[in-house]
Nucleic acid binder design. Sequence first.
DNA 1: AGTCGCAAGATCGCATACAATTTGAACTCG
DNA 2: CGAGTTCAAATTGTATGCGATCTTGCGACT
Lengths: 237, 237
Amino acid sequence: MNISETITFSDTGPEDRSSTIREALRNAIIDRRLAPGTKLSEAEVGALFDVSRTVARAALQMLTFEGLVKTERNRGAFVSHPSPDEARQVFASRRLIEPGIVAGALERITPSDIAHFRRQLEEEARHMNERGPAARRAEIKASGDFHLLLASVCGNAILQKFMDELVARSSLVIALYGRSGISSCGHAEHSAILDALENGDGKRASTLMIHHIDHIEADLDLQLKQGSGLKDALSLS
Amino acid sequence: MNISETITFSDTGPEDRSSTIREALRNAIIDRRLAPGTKLSEAEVGALFDVSRTVARAALQMLTFEGLVKTERNRGAFVSHPSPDEARQVFASRRLIEPGIVAGALERITPSDIAHFRRQLEEEARHMNERGPAARRAEIKASGDFHLLLASVCGNAILQKFMDELVARSSLVIALYGRSGISSCGHAEHSAILDALENGDGKRASTLMIHHIDHIEADLDLQLKQGSGLKDALSLS
DNA sequence: AGTCGCAAGATCGCATACAATTTGAACTCG
DNA sequence: CGAGTTCAAATTGTATGCGATCTTGCGACT
């Protein structure tokens, strides 16, 4: 496993090591370097990051709270394998929250923010034009970052935290249920939303956002093919 | 301190003890038996519930994730003391989410649910007619339970979790900034919302809900009297 | 041959021990 | 008498050890 990327703790400063591990695992999960269903043993995680089980456990507990990891008592922690129903709930939540985020962002967005968005969208476009699984992972991540940036502009830390969780879960869902062929449809819509925001047209931006979310969800294949948990093992190994 | 209420672990079964402690602390916080700013030392919490620091720490970590507790590295955990700005963010989030919850609940609510709501509202009314701080605490809690019940009916576990957090934070905010005199205005509005739901009038229910939230927030005194964190110490000790 | 039971191995839950950091106070010096 | 410094008490951060629980492989019994 090469989960730990090129992480040397010194980079992030002496701050919470468990948070650093959480972020690394989080990135690995939403990048799909860690497949849903993968077991994350405390000892293994601890060994990978060269810490004790205590801090590894703390990181896993945080991820469990975010819904990216599922822990079963006396059995361990596993990368979440959201059911189609959970997937629908994720998108229902986003449909509810994101229009409000757009409205909030509209009132506080600055030219400097817009420039930031433009750079972000360029990045996104670059990944879109590349091929290969690495590029696709980067694309999913970049697409999520657009929504997170929007949430940060809106200035509500609570909503931002909610969006953090929703975007992360979405990445999992897309990786699991996405029909890979048509997945790169989001970029133009991001641009359009940003344009509407720049023109101060909040109504249009909200509408575009809802359609955008609809499109993402429509691109999924959410037929319920799984009963309980035996499929986990089936799909992962 | 009598935080632990009448808790004997055997009640909740052999499940996670840290979760049990989390709930007990959570209740104590939203009931205002634990004042904002109060220090929650790991050792003290552990002693109160007769567990080691390890599990106490886990409970505190969960509460930190919910925003009910703030931990500072190497300094400890404290009951959150939300700023007026945070308070506004809480209510902004609720204004965004709860209408959607109402809409979701409308489609799934059953007569049995409605009966449940009625019983809940009676309970609420009982506390409203009593006097004293204990009754007021119970009233705040019961009022929150109405919203949580609504969220549970809506059938979206993610939104339900969000509402859990928002309602808990609201209780803190109300306890901190509520003008105590007029606080008991919510009951009639809850009834009205339920009536609208029963009649299938989702539009009206949503509108009532927004007004309800507006009223709650309007009843607060959110003048920003505090600069940073020195006031915490000032108000707690 | 199939099934049940049992024991060994692995992993987690929790407690405890030790290290690191902060805080507050006593103490010294100007 | 006040300011600065040093040290000790308290508290958190982290590691590790032990018991409990679950899994799994092997063997005996039907």
